[in-house]
């Protein structure tokens, strides 16, 4: 066991990890941040996406030890203290971009990263960026709309309202 220290959602957190402990296990089991989900074991589905030092990574495919000293942001760190949703979160609700909610944390984290890299993505840009985030419920239509809307672009240009 090693004791790791990370800044998670702005707060310094410490916890114990084995060599094999994955970052997602550290977040869920050690820090009790269960918003980050595990939907596969082959690094495909993206339900586990968090930001490490500002970049999206799959927390199921990174050892917790690799994140020692890093800044981590998870889904729990998105909305403001008073509960105000971020633009991406609010757009997901406004456009019904989620159903069962299981892939949603990863989707929101990926979408947030996309808009940081590319503030005005096209529909094709969004679809391409979500290559590693699988949703089984929505057929993606409303997720695409939500992200497009969160970027401040006119959704009616890509889909009928």
């Amino acid at each position: 066991m090693t004791t790791l220290t990370m800044k998670v959602n702005g707060k310094t957190r410490t916890g114990d990890a084995e060599g094999r402990t994955l970052l997602v296990q550290f977040l869920r089991d050690e820090l009790e941040l269960t918003g980050t989900h595990v939907g596969c074991d082959t690094s495909q589905c993206g339900a586990c996406v968090v930001h490490v030092n500002g970049k999206p990574v799959k927390s199921c495919t990174m050892f917790a030890n690799e994140a020692d000293g890093a800044e981590i942001v998870t889904i729990e760190g998105q909305a403001a203290e008073d509960g105000t949703l971020t633009a991406v979160q609010q757009a997901f609700q406004d456009h019904h971009g989620l159903q069962c909610g299981f892939c949603t944390p990863g989707m929101v984290m990926s979408a947030t990263a996309l808009l940081k890299e590319n503030p005005k993505p096209t529909e094709a840009d969004i679809r391409h960026y979500l290559e590693g985030n699988i949703c089984r419920c929505t057929g993606y239509h409303n997720i695409i709309k939500a992200i497009y809307a969160a970027s401040g672009q006119d959704v009616s240009s890509i889909a009928a309202e």
Partner: peptide
């Protein structure tokens, strides 16, 4: 290659 998260690692 892969997807954005994979490309970051």
């Amino acid at each position: 290659i892969g997807d954005p998260a994979v490309r970051n690692r």
